[in-house]
Simulated scan of single mutants.
Amino acid sequence: MPQSIDEHTGARIARIRKQRGLLQQGLALRANVSKSLLSKVECGQKPASPALIAACARALGVTTSDLLGQPYAEELRRDRMDALIQPIREGMENWDVALEWETAPRPSALIRADVQRVLVQRRQAQYTDMVRDLPSLIDESVQAVHTSTGEEQRQAYECLAGAFRCVFTVAWKFGFIDLATVALDRLAWTAPHADEPGLVAMYSFLRAQTTLSSGRYDVGMRVVDRALRDLDGQDARRPAGLSAMRGMLHLRAAVIAGRAKDRDHAEIRLAEARALAAETGELPDYGVTWGPTNVGVHAVAMASEMDEFGLAIELAKDVRIPRDWTRSRAGHHWMDLGRAHTWAGHPDQALDCLQRARRIAPQQTRYHPTVRETVLALKRRERARNGSLTEYAEWVGV
């Protein structure tokens, strides 16, 4: 059966389940979910939570991207983003070999300025500009690593780590999981050479993110806790950045515990993050968005993921997003809140949230599976034709 762009995640689960020759009861047993919940998800009566998607993907022997329908090839071609991904794949081929360049690479300080620019583009969800510049920055950083020594070489490694961080982000968000895995491996090799504990912690933070997709929550929690132990007593050129990474690791642990349905542990980790944020205030560093606002945003997202939509909506009332806050995180918040309003039966508020996400971070919003699932759910519940919803669905590609 061919895949339809209007096929929601539950329908994909049902289609692949039937291809595997499994009844709903068989998949429910393998995925350790209730048959009643699986039945409602497959027919679109309940949302497919990230935890359920990961469990079904493992049970069916596919990736979560397969169940989410990623990557969205037609939209990528339409936006000419597909043509920008291949040069990155080619650029990632070299990370450990010096080439015979006719001219020397620029000083690491100049390369670093450009890497900082693409890191800002990443946080602001400006992916087209970021992706266009990454291949040349990777090449130049690799060459600088192999043709310099001392502090110059250390800074080159830091530049390379930042570039690989950006590759991971765009590959993961667009559903190119194989490319994201390569980027993560490259970061694991690069970060220790940069002699920045925060970058090593960043690798662990991202590695734990991949376990959310695979459903290996036990591994993810151990990765986070090991990274937190490794940060104890560390010296750093940017000590405030280490506080930011500690906070982000606690938030990651809270999400992992939430996906594992361990609410008590999730609340403990969220409380630890909240207490640390109260001490530090808003503290962006190492390319993360850390502070009280992000803790509040995570609390909303966790409640929505656990299908506690009323709680998510209540918690969102206390979230005040600063005017100059990171667009990628702000956009993600409005996506999560839109999902909560949809399944709480508030279609107008849901569409308003999605429109906010679109205005703040259009590229991220258009390619995010949460948005597609929310729009499809709104369309299924539409009682009268809504021109705004129709236009939005066409923009998203469903």
Rank of each mutant, 00 (worst) to 15 (best):
E151Y: 12
L23Y: 06
M245R: 10
R320L: 10
T374Q: 06
E151N: 15
D79G: 01
Q126C: 13
L37M: 14
W395S: 02
W343K: 03
I177M: 10
G331C: 11
A330G: 07
P369C: 02
Q86C: 04
E74M: 07
T374C: 04
R372L: 04
S141A: 12
G69T: 10
C56E: 01
Q355F: 09
E140Y: 04
V297F: 05
S243C: 09
W334M: 03
T365D: 03
A254S: 14
Q19V: 01
T370C: 05
V224D: 03
Y157F: 11
D129M: 07
E42S: 08
V300N: 08
S65D: 12
R80N: 10
S148Y: 14
A161C: 05
M92H: 03
G220I: 03
L311K: 14
K46I: 13
L52T: 06
E140S: 07
R122C: 15
G345A: 15
A194Q: 00
A277Q: 02
R259A: 11
R80V: 02
L38M: 15
E279V: 02
R339N: 09
T9R: 02
I138C: 04
G175P: 02
L270W: 03
G91H: 00
S39T: 15
E308V: 12
L23P: 02
R123Q: 14
L283T: 07
V97H: 11
R329H: 15
R269F: 10
D230V: 05
V371R: 00
T169R: 14
E305L: 07
L283V: 03
M92F: 07
P197E: 09
A208W: 08
R30N: 03
A161I: 01
A257Y: 08
I177G: 12
V297G: 02
A350F: 13
H265T: 15
P347R: 01
D178H: 08
P47A: 14
S214I: 02
E152Q: 15
V167S: 00
E90S: 06
I138K: 01
K317V: 10
D178W: 07
E314I: 09
A275V: 13
K173P: 00
L52K: 01
Q25V: 11
A14G: 04
Q355I: 12
M221K: 03
R372V: 10
A273V: 06
A208C: 10
L137C: 01
V319L: 13
G258S: 15
G247F: 13
A361N: 03
E152F: 14
Q124S: 13
E196V: 03
N32E: 13
L228E: 04
K35R: 15
K261A: 13
A48D: 10
E373F: 01
A271D: 11
N386T: 02
L99W: 05
A55F: 05
Y72C: 00
S328R: 11
Y157L: 00
G331P: 08
K46N: 15
T342P: 03
P362H: 09
M130Y: 00
T149P: 00
R216C: 04
Q126A: 14
V200T: 11
I16M: 06
S108M: 10
V182W: 14
A83H: 10
G296A: 05
